[in-house]
Amino acid sequence: MKLQINNQERETAARNLQELAEELQLPAKGVAVAVNNAMVMRASWATHTLSENDRITIVKAACGG
């Protein structure tokens, strides 16, 4: 599936935000994520299903990417 992450296109196999976070190796702390401009709390990542062309914004600390 194709996503826009911080305005860059990315192909992913992730089905939800948690899987995407793992794929992107997001750190355990210091990350804020929004899907189509709605902030999604970490506790909800696993249940937040991704759809084709979702626009993801990730604010994360420097490490791991």
Binding site: K29, A32, A61, C63
Partner: peptide
Amino acid sequence: ARQLLGPNCIIG
């Protein structure tokens, strides 16, 4: 600021 705060801190 990055040197003081380390890698796990958001800096805008």
